[in-house]
Simulated scan of single mutants.
Amino acid sequence: MAAAGAGHPLIDACEELAADVLAPGRLVTLMDSGTAALETAYAALRLEPGSEVLVSSASFRATVTAMLPSGLVPVLCDTDPATGGIDLDDAAARITPRTAALTITHMWGRPVPLDAVHALCERHHLALVADCSHAYGLAWQNQPVGLAGDVTVWSCGTWKMASGGKAGLLATSDHAVWERALVLSQPKHRALARVRDERLRALAVTGAGHNRRPSPIAAALVADHLRRLPHTLATKRERQTAVELLLDRHLPELEPLPESAGRTAGASYKWHWRAAGDHPVDTVVQALRAAGVRAGLPARPLHELPLFTDPDLAAHLGLAVQLPDPASFPGTARLLDRLVEIDTRDSYEPLPDGDPDPYDHALTAAPERLAATGPLSEEG
């Protein structure tokens, strides 16, 4: 639910709708980006600086880096190759007396098993942050994933299923966390209209150095996309099924990832297939691109990026990170091994009546281009 306050009516309406659609009964706040929502979430939980937060190495970079301004230390964990989310057994093994929170990301719209997540958090008294930016309309065992975290966030940027061009949403059931989030993110008049805690109201007069004010234009776009979300989800599922049939017919060496266990609603944010043939995965991607398919490789995992490999880089900006053992992420390696990613920005609307599926032509051409390269036994 959204509380009435001195805000723009388009922003108020967007928050009300987001609560109804994504997180029924939660307090929802719109911000100017998903990264801003994540930064606010970590700060509003009031975790002690130096506290450790468990997070998958396969998460989107901002899911992790947004905790750094609060002085929190990301502890990169392995990935469960079956779900694409954090490996909860590996996360449990990395818990120390300084561990204060767990962050989950439903990567590509593949749900993390929430019963096991809640059990781990309860057993070790961890706060739970849920990044649902890929998970619009997603449900795990009929439970909307937006209800799972102490704080839940969505990016509403770029090609997300509800996009304002640049915006983000934060939801929580904890009124104190919500008030702190308002003071940390909203303009003075809006925070003062909603916050009741006297100490926070005093702080709202000046703010805390952040301006995460959302645009009314972004709010109108996000609201429009939220109203259309059932149509978008149904269209994406229909288009994915059609493309999988075409791949099975034209390019069977691309094998789809197994369906996510427990998913009872939602749709994939991006599509992934594993290259099971003899060709190097880069060659497969190049053949698909040459045929007109928006194909690529998934982003590299965080434990391979300079922030987590260069001991001086984080210190240069006064940031605290741990440098993990690169050999301690076998699940992440298995998930990403020979994985091909297809951008789904052309799958948000159904094909016009009578128009051929452009994937049919592209996936007919791709095998010919691939065959011209000849099979290779080694990558390179």
Rank of each mutant, 00 (worst) to 15 (best):
T172I: 11
T241P: 04
H272Q: 14
L323I: 11
L17F: 08
P306D: 01
A101S: 02
L302W: 09
H210C: 06
T264W: 08
H134R: 13
V129D: 05
V28K: 03
D115W: 01
A371C: 00
R180V: 00
R263V: 11
A290W: 03
D355N: 08
S51P: 01
L192E: 09
D355E: 15
P356K: 08
D115R: 15
T283A: 14
L45F: 05
W159H: 11
A43S: 11
P69T: 12
L17E: 12
S163V: 01
L169E: 01
G354A: 09
A162S: 02
T65C: 09
P258F: 01
D343N: 06
L254D: 01
A218S: 10
A41N: 00
L76F: 11
V75W: 07
G146N: 06
V293C: 05
D346G: 07
R334Q: 15
H316K: 12
A135F: 04
R228S: 10
L339I: 02
A6H: 10
G137Y: 00
A314N: 14
D325G: 10
R194M: 15
E15G: 02
E379H: 14
P326V: 12
P367E: 05
V151G: 10
L30K: 10
D197G: 05
L200S: 05
V151T: 09
A92P: 10
Y136P: 02
L336N: 13
G146S: 04
I95T: 03
T79M: 13
L184A: 10
G50P: 11
V284M: 09
V151L: 05
A41I: 07
T105I: 04
D115M: 07
A62G: 05
W108Q: 13
R300W: 09
P69R: 13
L376C: 06
I104W: 07
R338H: 03
G34E: 00
L313W: 00
V117N: 12
L54Y: 12
L376W: 04
V177E: 08
A315W: 07
A372W: 06
A371P: 02
V321C: 07
R199N: 06
G207T: 04
T332K: 06
R98N: 07
L22A: 03
D357E: 07
V321P: 04
L221H: 06
G109K: 00
V195L: 10
I342H: 04
G71K: 13
I86D: 11
A44M: 07
G165I: 08
P298T: 14
L370T: 00
L254W: 05
A265S: 12
P111N: 10
E52K: 14
S347V: 02
G164W: 10
R345W: 06
L307Y: 01
E179N: 04
L370M: 02
P350Y: 08
L54I: 13
H118P: 07
A220W: 00
D90R: 09
S163N: 10
L229I: 03
L126P: 05
P81C: 14
L323K: 06
